[in-house]
Amino acid sequence: MSHLTLRYRLNGNERADLVAGDETLLSLLRYRLDTTSVRQGCRQGTCGTCTVLVDGEPRLACITLAATCEGCAIETADSLPGSGGLHPLQQAFMDHFAAQCGFCTTGMLMAAKALLDVNPSPSREEVIDAIGGNICRCTGYEPIVEAVLAAATAARAGATPPAAHRHC
């Protein structure tokens, strides 16, 4: 088997791991490094559950070969909380009931983060597009869209998001 040494940054930490040429990023992060916040939903790229950020771009870990991430910065949901506590997206997801079973949540958060990092004031349509590759079977998406919009507002204000109108 052809192995190579992959040098990359995982949530800010420099790493070097030996990876097989055909090893996916999901397999490396979840099954070898025990980053369990990166979850496997389909292994086909269709559900978005394993979304992580590679150099700031949203990527599906299940259909990304680890070896192609040489020199990249990889972020998972574990990197979200800042020194001040939860990331505005995490707080908004809680406040807006945007997580039910929780399985899609980390992927959803990373997809949303990829958007807010480059577009701090997204429109509703842009939010819908940003999470368009992520499947949630519980919420019906509306609370998630609301949460992302609220998180954007909160992040701009530099405060925690308003728990405005809650879905019960």
Binding site: T51, E57, P58, A111, L115, D129, G133
Partner: peptide, 12 residues
Amino acid sequence: ARSVGGPAVRAQ
């Protein structure tokens, strides 16, 4: 280009 998958697919 925008019609191809979601943002993660498009990035790849």
